[in-house]
Amino acid sequence: MVRAVKYKKSGGSASKKKIKDAIAGWIFIAPLLIGMLLFLAFPLGYAFVISFTDAKSTMDGASFVGFDNYVTAFKEPLFMQGLINVLITCIAVPIAIFIAVILTNLLVANPRGSTIFKAIFYIPTICGAIAISFIWQSMYAQGYGVINQMLKALGWITTDINFISDKNFLVSMMVMGVWAGLGTSILLLYASLKSVNRQLYEAASVDGANFVQKFRYITLPALSPTIFYILVTGISGTLQEFSRFQAMAGAHGTPAWAMSPVWFIYIRTANNFRGQATACGIILGACILIISAFQFVGSRLWVNYDS
């Protein structure tokens, strides 16, 4: 009898607690959920509506034009050139990861001073795209820029290189991009390499593994999820570059050699072709999703989630 009462009581309070928890839970997630519905889900759905209209400055009075905006996007030389430009710039992402992996290994193997080195490598990442582009623009400058002066002092060139030109712009952006992004990669890689069990390395040493083998069979598999994350987010970010491209080449107007898709979308938005701008946004977004999907499929071959 006593047991039954007790059981009933606790059962009752348990279900009461369940309801209380459910209410608390939904209250906890409510602000974020509402924000995402209002400022993500709604605009996302709206994007597809706008992209099929000839919306100029507003949606008022816009009429449906079918797939016209999508078709004309592919005929826009500036948009296409922008896509090619950012796709080429993506080459810098794996290069930056390669450098970051080497530096991270050096830091983990030589812990003395690693905190200071990490802090220094991270400084460019906290700086705005505008400041970074301006600083590099002045270093790239012809005549007084330090890079041209240095190359001349070394005797490698006799006349100044125009780094902000059709031929060199993307390479200039890549060099700057590696410098600006390395800090985040190193911080993330360092955290995941630190969590690797040191005994694995000792065991491998006992078995006679050399440095390269240890790197290949212990370090790389351990880092692969982080490398994959940096690769996907890095490529997605590069494909959506805008501020750096504009700040770097802004003094030249809107040249095709420095165009990026987002820059093009911004121009179309500012010029009141917002239906077309939206369609271009969806096309770029779809490209990014497809490229990410391919990376996910490919990641099964090399990313190790065991540890």
Binding site: M36, L40, P43, I50, L239, Q240, L284, G285
Partner: peptide
């Protein structure tokens, strides 16, 4: 939603 590229919602948000 984290994989959705921000550029898709940029112009629609502006219009909203």
């Amino acid at each position: 939603t984290m994989v959705i590229p921000g550029i898709i919602t940029m112009v629609p948000s502006f219009l909203l």
